[in-house]
Amino acid sequence: MNIVILGSGNAATHFGQQFQKTGHHIVQIYSKTKANADALAFALHCAAIDQLSELDLHAHLYLIAVTDQAIVSLLEALPKDIKGVVIHCSGATDLSVLAGFKNAGVIYPPQSLSKNKAVDFSTVPLCVEGNTDENSAKLLQLAQTFAPRSIYCNSQQRLAIHLASVMVNNFTNILYQMAYELLAENELSFDLIKPIILETAEKVQNHIPITVQTGPAIRQDSTTMQKHLQFISNKPDLQQIYQLLSQEITKRK
Rank of each mutant, 00 (worst) to 15 (best):
M1P: 03
N2A: 05
H14M: 11
Q17I: 05
Q17A: 09
Q20K: 09
I29G: 06
K32S: 12
T33L: 09
K34R: 13
N36L: 09
N36S: 10
L44Y: 05
H45P: 06
A47G: 07
D50I: 08
Q51D: 14
L52M: 13
S53V: 13
E54V: 08
L55C: 08
A59S: 15
A59R: 03
L63D: 04
L63R: 01
D68Y: 11
A70F: 05
V72N: 13
S73L: 11
L74C: 00
L74S: 05
A77D: 06
L78H: 15
P79Y: 15
P79R: 12
P79V: 08
K83V: 10
V86S: 11
V86N: 11
S90M: 04
D94M: 01
L95T: 09
S96C: 00
G100H: 07
F101D: 08
Y108S: 08
Y108G: 06
Y108Q: 05
S112L: 03
S114R: 15
V119N: 14
V119Y: 00
S122M: 03
S122C: 01
V124D: 00
P125I: 00
V128H: 04
V128S: 06
E129D: 05
G130K: 00
G130W: 03
E134R: 10
N135I: 15
N135C: 12
A137Y: 02
L139H: 07
L140S: 03
Q141N: 12
Q144C: 02
R149H: 00
Y152P: 04
Q157I: 12
L159A: 12
L159Y: 02
A164F: 04
M167D: 13
V168Y: 00
N170H: 13
T172F: 12
T172W: 09
N173C: 11
N173H: 12
N173F: 04
I174P: 03
A179T: 15
A179R: 05
Y180G: 14
L182R: 03
L183M: 15
N186T: 03
I197T: 08
K203T: 14
N206F: 04
I208Y: 03
I208K: 03
I208W: 01
P209A: 12
P209T: 14
V212E: 00
Q213A: 05
I218N: 12
I218Q: 13
S222T: 15
T224L: 09
F231M: 11
S233V: 01
N234I: 01
K235Y: 10
P236N: 13
Q239H: 05
Q240C: 08
Y242R: 05
Q243P: 01
Q247K: 15
Q247Y: 09
I249N: 09
K253T: 06
K253C: 08
